[in-house]
Amino acid sequence: MIRAYRANGSLEIVELSERPTDLDADIIWLDLIHPTRDEAILVEELLSLALPTRDELKDIEPSSRLYVENEAIFMTASLIYKVEADLPHLADIAFILFGNRLITIRYAEPKAFAAFSSSLLRPNFHCASAALLLGRLLEAVVDRTAEVLEMLATRLDELSVAVFIDRKAAKRRPPGFLEDKLLDIAAHHQLVSKASSSLVSLGRMAAFLQAQPKVRLDQDAREMYELVGRDIQSLDEHAAFVGNNISFMLDASLGLISVEQNAIIKIFSIASVVFLPPTLVASIYGMNFKFMPELEWSTGYPLALVAMLLSAVIPFLFFRWKGWL
């Protein structure tokens, strides 16, 4: 699908004819969403510009994502999407500045694009150049990433409350509670990792654009990219902070699991130690030798029971006195 936007005071969506021969000069943005090969060829013919294919977007190396060719600025950034799903993804999206036009090629639909498309159709939205339009689009993407990090921080707070509760509530936890929380922590770690990768990609793109003569001559666009660059830097620091919190939650959860396991092992160890002396007594007096003097005692059996009871109670009281229980 090809979505075209015309700069006519405010921006408006333009319906392209089935096979246009040229583009109006005031069309400032061409948004290619899951474009077919025929649609890509059509845009290439209209612009006289070769567009990257889907495979090229996937296979392009990080060092080759930003370049200038035939007076066109080609950029590829990784944007996070499917945040609400169990497995967030990164989408490689192409941004091309060619003349006073912005061309975007995407095979995913991040929410930032939908929010930005809705905002630019407002009557008070004005954009004099494609470079400024791209800056505002990047601002929307960065704002969406900030929302993702805030949502992640909220989830971590809820997870912290669930994990670090009082001991009475901890005794009522279902089996495997903490193990399930480890899966949640792993999902949060993956999300913050994707967000950090996206921020790095956006930061490189913003820095690259600030060095372009076309952008440096456009004061509004230059100021916008400087603002976006500062926002990306602050979000990158916030993502690192959230990542540290996730690492702490992981270490703490593993520690609590170890404490619970040690408590269980402690119970078994104490039980084995407590019942070891009675077993020893029973083993001794269970040997039916002919010349054992105790075999002739009329009180031998009750004395053996008393000896086994005392040999269990005395170690138990000793452990309590030592504070080991």
Results as ranks from 00 to 15, higher is better:
F125K: 03
L134Y: 06
L254H: 06
L66A: 09
S283Q: 10
N100K: 08
S201W: 06
V161N: 14
Q219A: 13
A239Y: 08
V142K: 07
E223H: 11
A112E: 00
K58G: 07
G243R: 12
L310C: 12
P315Y: 09
R230V: 03
K194L: 12
M224S: 13
A206Y: 00
M287S: 03
A304Y: 02
D251L: 02
V163F: 01
E84P: 01
K111V: 09
N70W: 02
E45I: 01
D22W: 08
A115C: 00
T21N: 13
M151A: 15
M224E: 12
H238W: 10
Y285M: 10
T36K: 08
L49G: 08
A50M: 10
L227F: 04
E56Y: 07
H89N: 11
V281H: 06
D92K: 13
F208H: 05
L11D: 02
E12K: 12
I185M: 09
P88R: 04
V141K: 01
A91H: 01
D22K: 12
L47R: 04
E147N: 10
P88H: 04
R6P: 02
L317C: 11
L325V: 14
L149K: 06
P123F: 05
L209C: 10
I2G: 00
E109T: 14
F241I: 10
E158K: 15
I246V: 15
W29F: 12
F275R: 02
